[in-house]
Design a protein around this nucleic acid. Structure first.
Lengths: 210, 210, 210, 210
DNA sequence: CATGAATGAGCGTTCATTCAT
DNA sequence: AATGAATGAACGCTCATTCAT
């Protein structure tokens, strides 16, 4: 049986109507982030999260139908930051400036909580969590940014995916190595991103001509 | 040292003296690869590996002192393929040809077993497994390749790390998306690698001149 | 310290805050005693204890961080009885009466649960459990009793240790043989204890005079 | 099911007719002693014994039908030493001299291999091993020694049991404490033994007259 | 006979989840 | 609602024992 029939929900159990409940939910999600950051995947369990949040395990299950729902909520919280960054980026004048802004944002976030981003990347790719997080929308938005930066790019959504992957790869590796020099990492990341775009632009143009 | 001193060993427990044993060891490692590929990290447990290998759980523990040792053995088996590829790459005439060969090799391997590579990347970075796998040596060797490709590059080892990260990022993402078009992926990866190198070369040169 | 630093705790995991929990803890310890008594060391495993206590294995581990902690708890429960007996003994007028009271108490306890005492003696001496039980304090208190009984005894703490050993030896052997005649055993034990003291007193005095 | 129906044998599987086999058996038993002494009950397993003996686990099972049989063999080997000591003791002129000789022998043996004696005592009392070792005969012989020392003693076999228990208790405790002063231990043991006998003799005589 | 690879029942322990209070 | 005691499936691992070579 690879497919469980009684599909667990990933949505929070209730739309918290009272602000108290909202606070509780937020504190649980933040606790999840802290546990993940400080204890790693190994120490990421519901009891630890509840303890860190200062609520009972029962309360945690009042708001989240299961561990995965909590994970999804955390992923979405972190994803939202990218959304926000993206929104800011889209206010920038030039496309290049927008991209540079995003690179800076990614680096800053990563170096703040090095483990968190990486572990969420891992969780994100768990089969069964796939599709529960709004990655596609994010990439679409990112594709828009790219289209502005390189208007004639033939496949902006592919480029968006690649640049995501490149950024994630470099930034996670930096976190793992314990890099702290933001300037330097940002510099290299710019090289990777704009280097990729410059090459892809030309080549793809050529390959399309075929 | 805050780690526990009486660490479990990661080395295989015994050098199998009978040929039957060698087969058993190999079949266990291969079973580990298959379980990881098909069931993911969640289903990667020693009982499942033993079952898939067609041996008893006791046999598994006769050759591996613990689950982590098995993981390390699998990582090393996969790492060896890179070593071999690297060795071939170093026979290539030009540095660029060497790099291109490696890119091709990475893509081919990845698309054969998409999950495996990614999950091993994850495991590799588990605290407690760190340092048990000869990543540094691999990167040093890779730095040599880069030095040949871009002789005047100021920090080949940094570039090696970044290119590793870029490749891993793109190739894992491709696996996750279920990409199967080797040509296309290879093409984009070349763009990323050579794009990065072209930009980094110049910028760093400039920044060094300061 | 050659012992592993990240030692399992032997202290109960949590102070049970609800009265239901207190009962559970007590029932687990009592179940441990029963299992040890009826199944011996061989059958003394956490699952059997949980089953006998009528609780799940999870509950057992909620209160005891490991099997050893449970063993220690049981040892301490039994040790406390000696403490209490000792306290009563110290209220007796004469030292000899105190000693006789203790002998009687030891015999009575032993013949109630013959195996338990013996098996706990064994566990008590397991390296790794050593020092987790307050044996020294017990012997100190006992030394006080002896000092009252034989004021001029030169090494009361040595005598205390010897009398402990003698009592334990005789009483365990009696349990093993299935003796049930309390009177008779008590009689022989008195002979051993007072016989030892009478001889030791004189000899040691002489050897000290040297 | 407390009684296993297919009763394991405790006798060595075959009377070793060739001297090579005899040596193998002896080396296995000695290895068992060494493992028990150095690793404790926890480390006492058949594989460890075979390894220490320098034979294969298969060979061990060729000569001993099971672990318990090995344990019994070791117990009997150690018991034989007492037999021999007893035989020597019986050549002594006076009964008191015989007893003193035995006390000395017990102390010397114990302090040579402190753990061994204690752990064997423990194993000896395992239900299922009971009666497989010739304890009664040993105590009968010992009773003879006592009868010589205290001719008018009313219950020499009871006294024999008690003195065994006393000696074992004191000597094991000494081993546990790491005592090394043979003289001192022997002195206290003599006090215990002769103290017990002096008191028991009189009291029992009186109680018998009733 | 000797070897040692192989077996698998069984143990200690964890942790997601439920539910009586 | 909130609590936290209770549950139990499932995992990592050991070791007595067997059996093909």
């Amino acid at each position: 049986m690879t497919e469980r029939s009684a599909q667990k929900q990933f949505k929070p159990r209730k739309a918290p109507s009272q602000s108290r409940a909202e606070e509780t939910v937020a504190s649980i999600v933040e606790a999840a982030a802290q546990v993940l950051e400080s204890e790693g995947l190994e120490g990421f369990n519901t009891n630890a999260v509840a303890r860190r949040a200062g609520v009972s395990i029962g309360s945690l299950y009042q708001y989240f139908p299961g561990k995965d729902a909590l994970t999804v909520a955390l992923i979405q919280r972190e994803t939202k930051r990218f959304y926000d960054d993206m929104a800011v980026a889209l206010t920038k004048r030039g496309g290049k400036a927008a991209l540079e802004y995003l690179i800076g944002a990614a680096v800053r976030q990563q170096l703040q909580r090095p483990m968190l981003a990486k572990l969420l990347d891992i969780e994100e790719s768990r089969p069964g969590l796939r599709g529960e997080v709004g990655k596609p929308e994010l990439e679409n938005l990112f594709a828009t940014v790219i289209q502005r930066a390189i208007p004639k790019h033939p496949h902006p959504e592919v480029a968006a995916g690649d640049l995501f992957a490149i950024t994630r790869g470099m930034v996670d590796a930096a976190g793992e190595r314990g890099e702290t020099d933001i300037e330097n990492l940002e510099h290299r990341l710019r090289a990777a991103v704009f280097g990729y775009l410059s090459k892809i632009g030309k080549d793809q143009a050529i390959s399309d001509r075929r």
